[in-house]
Design a protein around this nucleic acid. Structure first.
Length: 446
RNA sequence: CGGAGUAUGGCGCAGUCUGGUAGCGCACCUGGUUUGGGACCAGGGGGUCCAAGGUUCGAAUCCUUGUGCUCCGACCA
């Protein structure tokens, strides 16, 4: 996947809004609308405009890379599924009205997939015959649909959403839990790479089912549920050391599950107080950005996903499933990274690293300086957005803060007379007047 | 799915009570003056007032029935 490394704002569809749309309640929703990243098409259903889509793909790519590292293989399954498989697993009725049911021209019952356990179990059943076909881990990143009663918070709780869902197939429970651990660790690393401090919490399994399950939660004021955890979670860095996914991951998992962490439903106040010293007790709100399950033979049995073991017996495979809400993550990242002026993107997911602001379009010196930097940054492989629109300086500054690129370079006649431009760090707000060369150096190195 | 709102130009809103054919701010277009943190002056374009039906000489406004969207709650990645 390669994203266009450089764009001119005059040629980029980024309809920003000065005022807050009435429909948006929380920061991430407001900012995504205001920054021209998304537009609502129907309740809980959004179009992704160029910049929003760009961020979505960046997040998707981070997820993909870590899945690949963990040994999962990417596939792509359809959005529309047949009802038959869901009848076999018994979930056609269980899922209730959340599942969008569709009838085709031949009156066949179809559905827009809310998840893919049935489909992939059937794929595995079809292609696997022996214990030698295990272990196997596959994932796909695809649009899902859940007909939420009450969609809200923009992409945080949409009806149509983009999700990574992965599935593991193992011969034994022991091996299955190893796969579970692999995903557990890869999840920690994935979120950390997006600038999120994530906390795994033992979870309720819901309609997916199973015994072993963790939710991955980030703390945010606008989180949907109350969570409780040990403060030390907030200083753990999953990427501090390299990881060998083929090795024993249990120690890492143990480290991350030994401290108290629970969502509202699983919370035990007595245990919380017993295990966590008073000064270390964190009670906050959390956003769920991922959920993993080990559920054994819940689907392999009814759907007949069996392999022959060494003794020649037919045994159902042990399965797990692993979800990351990719589109939701954008909302979560913005909730964690914004201020009163707009978004503050972590560099790894920023749509562009640098924004060049031409304060006087039409002034030869400004135009030349901007064009020169625009070209040089592209050549250096730095993703850059050039605001070459013929509008007021104030509007450009405001837009640039709103869309939250990590670095801004403002070029105006005043400083340019002395050969200088202003470089601003969006996160710290720190500004410095430096030469063009120094500016390029500054934004390229970091 | 229970409760509560709301629907008027791209966005934010007034007008509805008390019926007379639509207005304000921002944004947009043209010209001019400006030009380093959402400028100023002048001119201008853009609206089936959510929909259908009804009452009336006349409906954004009153009545009826729908629909969309939002918020609170229960539920969910």
């Amino acid at each position: 996947m390669r994203l266009n490394p450089a764009v001119r704002l005059s040629e980029y569809f980024m309809p920003t809004l000065k005022e807050n749309p009435a429909e948006a309640e929380i920061a991430s929703h407001r900012l995504m609308l205001r920054a021209g990243m998304i537009r609502q098409s129907a309740s809980g259903i959004y179009s992704w405009l160029p910049m929003g889509y760009r961020v979505l793909r960046k997040i998707e790519q981070i997820v993909r890379e870590e899945q690949d590292r963990a040994g999962a293989n990417e596939i792509l399954m359809p959005t529309i599924q047949s009802a038959d498989l869901w009848r076999k697993s018994g979930r056609y009725d269980d899922y209730g009205k959340e599942m969008l049911r569709i009838t085709d021209r031949h009156d066949r019952e179809m559905l827009f997939g809310p998840t893919n356990e049935e489909l992939i179990t059937d794929l595995f059943r079809d292609g696997a015959v022996s214990y030698k076909d295990c272990p196997q881990m596959m994932y796909h990143i695809q649009w899902k649909f859940r007909d939420e009663v009450r969609p809200r918070f923009g992409v945080m709780r949409g009806r149509e959403f983009f999700m990574k869902d992965g599935y593991s197939f193992d011969l034994t429970v022991e091996d299955g839990l190893k796969s579970y651990n692999r995903m557990f660790v890869s999840y920690l690393r994935t979120y950390a790479k997006m600038g999120l401090q994530v906390i795994p919490m033992r979870a309720d399994t819901g309609p997916i089912g199973g015994e072993n399950s963790h939710e991955f939660i980030i703390l945010a004021e606008t989180g949907e549920s109350e969570v409780f955890c040990h403060e030390d979670f907030l200083s753990l860095d999953p990427n501090a050391e390299a990881v060998n996914y083929k090795g024993d991951l249990q120690p890492i998992v143990d480290q991350w599950t030994s401290m108290y962490a629970a969502t509202e439903e699983m919370h035990d106040e007595g245990k919380f107080e017993a295990e966590v010293p008073e000064g270390k007790r964190v009670s906050a709100r959390g956003i769920e950005v991922g959920h993993i399950f080990f559920f054994g033979t819940k689907y392999s049995e009814p759907l007949g996903a069996v392999v022959q073991d060494k003794e020649g017996k037919q045994v159902p495979v042990q399965m797990g499933s692993y979800g990351i809400g990719v589109s939701r993550l954008i909302g979560a990242i913005i909730e964690a990274h914004h201020d009163e002026n707009g978004i503050i993107w972590p560099e790894s997911v920023a749509p562009f690293q640098v924004g060049i602001i031409n304060l006087r379009v039409g002034d030869d010196a400004c135009d030349e300086a901007c064009e020169g930097m625009f070209t040089k940054l592209q050549e250096a492989g730095v993703e850059v957005m050039y605001d070459d629109r013929d509008t007021k300086a104030g509007a450009k500054f405001a837009d640039m803060d709103l869309i939250g690129l990590p670095w801004q370079i403002a070029v105006g006649p005043r400083s340019l007379k002395n050969g200088q431009v202003e470089v601003k760090n969006r996160r710290t707000g720190e500004k410095q007047e430096v030469s063009i060369e120094a500016a390029l150096e500054l934004v390229t190195v970091s």
